[in-house]
């Protein structure tokens, strides 16, 4: 067992009755790494991710996240990770400050910590003029950045991003990836699922899930070399085609 790693997964399996959604996957993610978790719809990405963030119990195998066992220390795992889904789930009828206060509060931050962090967040995002507006009135791109910042409020060691750029425009996506880079540079591990293959190129390493298994795992450069492709899109298609044969 290697506790140096941010995420360490060995033969992790999830079965629903006869159906094996995740079939003995193994991988490691290092500290501060941006790890792309790819796969077609129904390949088992979401199920695998749910096991790692402690809301689904694995059928067998082992996994350590942020140094804690997902089987027995799910509570500690939860305290040390951040999570943001494609829905950018914040409360639309609360203001930015109230959202920050609530989510900071459930992670057990003190009032002073919440106050200073919220101030920091507002300055970083440059949203002073809208702090007292309800989040529902903000454009989607702002909500997404805000949701990311709120997920980072308790300074998690790892952030799980589930298709974080769904439905936002290319410029905002670009800005969002800049935020991700900055955070990874500060030592936070980023675990991200995406459907956009150009985003896969931004990742340090990429895994591609097909039918519950990880069929490819390497840096984007190596993967392109391995599959003799010019882009990640091609890699992805070749993998899918190989499966079809």
């Amino acid at each position: 067992m290697n506790t140096d790693k941010s995420i360490w997964v060995k033969d992790l399996t999830k079965k629903f009755g006869d159906f094996t959604a995740v079939d003995a996957i193994s991988f490691e993610v290092g500290k501060g790494e941006i790890f792309g978790f790819l796969g077609a719809n129904g390949a088992g990405k979401t199920t695998a991710m749910k096991m790692l963030i402690g809301i689904s119990k694995p059928s067998s195998g082992a996994a350590m996240v942020a140094g804690y066992d997902v089987f027995h220390q799910a509570d500690l795992v939860k305290q040390n990770i951040g999570y943001m889904s494609q829905k950018f789930a914040l409360y639309d009828d609360l203001t930015i400050k109230e959202n920050a206060r609530f989510f900071g509060g459930i992670y057990g931050l003190t009032n002073t910590e919440i106050k200073s962090k919220t101030q920091q967040l507002i300055t970083d995002l440059g949203i002073q003029e809208v702090v007292n507006q309800n989040v529902g009135s903000l454009p989607l791109g702002w909500k997404q950045k805000l949701a990311f910042s709120v997920a980072l409020l308790h300074e998690p060691k790892i952030v799980f991003l589930d298709e974080p750029t769904g439905g936002v425009d290319p410029i905002t996506r670009r800005q969002f990836w800049e935020m991700i880079y900055k955070q990874a540079h500060n030592g936070t591990t980023i675990f991200v699922t995406t459907h956009y293959m150009d985003e896969a190129e931004y990742c340090d390493r990429v895994s591609i899930m097909v039918d519950g298994r990880i069929d490819a795992l390497d840096t984007p450069t190596q993967l392109k070399k391995q599959f003799d492709a010019t882009s990640m899109n091609e890699v992805f298609l070749k993998l899918a085609r190989k499966l079809a044969h």
């Binding site: 509570d75 939860k78 409360y91 459930i106 799980f160």
Partner: peptide, 13 residues
């Protein structure tokens, strides 16, 4: 519906 339940379940609550 708005997805916050997922966030709450992932939180230490």
């Amino acid at each position: 519906e708005i997805g916050t339940m997922e966030i709450l379940l992932v939180s230490p609550l």
